[in-house]
């Protein structure tokens, strides 16, 4: 879900940076020092998790996990994803300064929406099956929205990138399914082992 630097137009880059800054500000305001260490270590766990390769059909894809971050952290997902992206830039040079805003917004915003979707479904449909459905939808929605926003950023940059953006979107369909399943199983596992993680990390 990374766009390399130097591809997007200045308008898209500026808009991404402004939106990411706003989201991060909201996330940081909702995050007090008591939860900061938990969010930091969970963000490290997501950083590691996004290096995991999962077989999808004949090839493999690395997990994105932004849906799961959203489900566990709520609005705090925004700063967590921003720091993980910054760390990826410093350690592996994926992305750089100018696209950091766009990448953080596409992934952070979709994970916050995934959180609202998860909570909404649980509200309507309580019980274990509801949690499963909600987690699957959250995970799949996180990836789908991130892919759609990335494709939009590409398409807004230039008319010539529109087909590339569409291809990018289609390529993420199987990843969406895999990510939804992984998120569902992980949420069920955490519900069984440490249910308080859902309360403690949110507030």
């Amino acid at each position: 879900m990374h766009i390399a630097e130097g591809i997007l137009s200045p308008v898209v880059l500026g808009a991404g940076a402004a939106l990411a800054a706003a989201g991060t500000a909201i996330g940081l305001r909702k995050l007090d020092y008591d939860r900061l260490m938990t969010v930091g270590i969970l963000s490290a766990a997501f950083f590691v998790g996004s290096l995991i390769h999962v077989p999808v059909g004949f090839s493999s894809a690395h997990l994105i996990l932004n849906g799961l971050v959203g489900v566990l952290l709520g609005w705090a997902a925004f700063p967590a994803i921003l720091t993980a992206l910054l760390l990826q830039a410093v350690l592996f040079q994926f992305g750089g300064f100018t696209v950091l805003g766009v990448n953080a917004f596409t992934m952070g915003f979709s994970s916050v929406l995934a959180w609202y979707c998860y909570r909404g479904i649980i509200g309507i449909w309580p019980g274990p099956t509801g949690i499963r459905a909600a987690a699957f939808c959250g995970g799949a929605l996180g990836v789908a929205l991130a892919a759609a926003l990335t494709a939009l950023a590409l398409a807004f940059t230039s008319e010539g990138f529109q087909t590339a953006a569409q291809l990018l979107l289609w390529a993420h369909l199987p990843v969406m399914l895999a990510e939804g399943l992984i998120t569902m199983f992980t949420v069920v596992f955490i519900q069984r082992v440490r249910p308080e993680m859902f309360q403690a990390a949110r507030a």
Partner: peptide, 28 residues
């Protein structure tokens, strides 16, 4: 590419997250 793989990977990931969470409480 099957459900067993996804379930296993998800359990490992969940374990990693749970351990990270507990570590964060201790570190705090």
């Amino acid at each position: 590419t099957d459900l067993h793989t996804y379930r296993t990977l998800a359990c490992l990931l969940g374990l990693l997250l749970v351990r990270a969470y507990e570590r964060s409480l201790r570190v705090r």
